[in-house]
């Protein structure tokens, strides 16, 4: 409500400024995101709905979809736990080497996808550190699902932590300290005070990790072995089909990945609806109360 009031009161130049910002944003996002998205769908539907559906309703494609979901389902929660722990340590305490720890968390981002797959080959490959031992014990890590999960965890590791750290830093610790002083236990403080405060950042972290986990190609392609129907994720299936002159099939799978954006939309809408009253009331109360 307050927003509506303010908008009405705003002077003409400010209104123009706002309009300009909105137009610029829409224009940029349309050109930069919507047009590529549209081109993916245009390619996928170039030979009509039948060809599109046929290329998705295929055992290899379905296996790839299942595998991609599985890998994301394992790696994203692990990174959420890591991200929350890391952000808690980084923002709630002072200790030596904090800057170094921050850099270490970012490290996987600086590793080129071309190299990040190689890392695991050097560790678990037949010529790698643990390769001979693993082979002797019949354990498969690379060219099997564990390798895909490991590589995915590696590349998505920083996202949740990176989302949480700036926000938790900006928010400070007063509320949590107050809760502690009032007798809440550590976990109670975390679940009742911290978690509600960071939920949006956490959500963005999860969205980023999930999108990246499902869309990653470079690192995963090195450790996958590309065995069709067995170790091929959706992005790998896209690449393989493209290389086989199956343009429509490749873009059909790619368009499914692009639909993730719609999942994002749904999750956010649901959360917004769920927390809508809560956010406004609490924020207003907090502003007035403190």
């Amino acid at each position: 409500m307050t927003m509506v009031h303010r908008r009405r009161r705003a002077s003409t130049p400010r209104r123009l400024g706002r309009l300009a910002l909105i137009v610029a944003t829409c224009a940029f996002l349309c050109l930069f995101l919507l047009v590529p998205l549209a081109s993916v769908f245009v390619e996928a539907w170039r030979q009509g709905a039948h060809a599109f559906l046929e290329s998705i309703d295929d055992p290899d494609a379905l296996a790839a979809i299942r595998l991609t979901l599985f890998v994301a389902l394992v790696s994203v929660p692990l990174n959420v736990v890591f991200g929350v722990a890391a952000a808690w340590a980084m923002t709630r305490f002072t200790f030596r080497g904090k800057a170094l720890l921050g850099a270490l968390i970012d490290l996987p981002l600086s590793v080129s996808p071309v190299v990040s797959g190689l890392l695991f080959v050097l560790m678990f490959g037949a010529q790698g550190w643990f390769g001979p031992w693993l082979a002797a014990h019949g354990i498969n890590i690379i060219f099997a699902v564990p390798g895909l999960v490991l590589a995915t965890i590696f590349i998505t590791l920083p996202f949740v932590a990176r989302e949480l750290i700036p926000l938790m830093q900006a928010q400070g610790t007063e509320e949590e300290e107050a809760a502690r002083v009032l007798g809440a236990s550590g976990w109670q403080t975390f679940f009742r005070v911290t978690l509600p405060n960071i939920r949006w950042a956490l959500l963005y972290g999860v969205l980023l990790s999930n999108a990246r986990a499902m869309g990653e190609f470079g690192a995963v392609s090195v450790v996958s072995g590309h065995i069709r129907g067995l170790t091929t994720t959706m992005p790998l299936e896209v690449e393989m089909r493209y290389n086989e002159y199956n343009y429509v099939g490749a873009f059909a799978i790619a368009s499914l990945l692009a639909l993730l954006a719609l999942v994002t939309l749904a999750v956010k809408a649901a959360l917004e609806w769920r927390f809508h009253a809560d956010t406004d009331v609490v924020a207003a109360a907090r502003r007035r109360g403190t």
Binding site: L29, L33, L34, P36, L37, V40, P113, L207, L208, A211, R212, M214, G215, E216, F217, G218, M234, P235, V238, E239, Y242, A250, F251, A254, L257, A258, L260, A261, L262, T264, L265, K268
Partner: peptide, 14 residues
């Protein structure tokens, strides 16, 4: 807003 994550979700080659 939902489209923002698109560059991550699309495989880089696509």
């Amino acid at each position: 807003d939902a489209l923002i994550d698109l560059p991550f979700a699309l495989p880089t080659a696509v």
